[in-house]
Design a binder for these strands. Sequence first.
DNA 1: CTAACTGCAAATAATTTGCAGCCGT
DNA 2: ACGGCTGCAAATTATTTGCAGTTAG
Lengths: 148, 148
Amino acid sequence: MSSENPPSSLWGHDVLEAHGHRLTASRRAILAALSNQASHLNPTQILEVARRQHARLNLASLYRNLTLFTRLGLVRPLYMGESQPQYIRNDQPHHHAICVRCNIILDFDECAASGLEKLVAGRYGFQSSSHLLEIYGVCQSCQAKPAV
Amino acid sequence: MSSENPPSSLWGHDVLEAHGHRLTASRRAILAALSNQASHLNPTQILEVARRQHARLNLASLYRNLTLFTRLGLVRPLYMGESQPQYIRNDQPHHHAICVRCNIILDFDECAASGLEKLVAGRYGFQSSSHLLEIYGVCQSCQAKPAV
DNA sequence: CTAACTGCAAATAATTTGCAGCCGT
DNA sequence: ACGGCTGCAAATTATTTGCAGTTAG
């Protein structure tokens, strides 16, 4: 038939709808800015990116929505030693190796924590939804530089 | 012999000395406040605790020293969704399960990441010094409460 | 002695809040 | 329509900086 609805596959829209939240231009723009799996952006950077799509976006609304999205489990703040947290998608576990000198972040996919999720479930009755693993150290190129 | 020096075993003092930093009353008090393995304190709370030992301690000095201690690898900031980061000792890997509803933190010792540390070393030449594993979910008592 | 540190006060940065109007549903 | 959301401006909270006096080594 001709009335087929194209699946609105934009990330997060379904979750907002399912919880009765409105799909506003601000929210679309923020979600779009965060939708890239690889992006690690702080609020100021998110504002900048999202404004390319919705120029009137305001920092106050951004903060309100980051809080909402975090509560809904769409995103998660990461503290990487900078002044502001960086927000990332909360789709799947994240595994980083972070260089303590230059702050470069290496992502990798291997996961070692699913066993531990079962362990805390069994021992503490803790119902885990995702996890974050950060390995701290010095990256290859910083090892070559003289120490600070 | 009578001239034996008692080992000044206070946590962090040796590291400061080794790097040529002075052992001031402020630094002693801050280190003491953070020395407990289990403590998760934000700057405001650290100030409060450290002032019990050194009443004149100032927030500005606290921030300056938290930055120093982080650079020296003594402590590490943790972002747990509260407004300020919490500082913890950076002695050994940390493994938490964090309840996204009540923010309670369960610590546990089992470590699953040492294999991954070897992996990033081999693949990226990354020299890791420690790691952080956070499991997010809902703790047992919050599961019993009605959802927000 | 003498730089490294400190406390204080003032500046800047980050986040939150109050409110009147706008816009998704 | 009407109530959730918004942008703006102002308030609050967090962090940094300048500077003159203090103190560890």
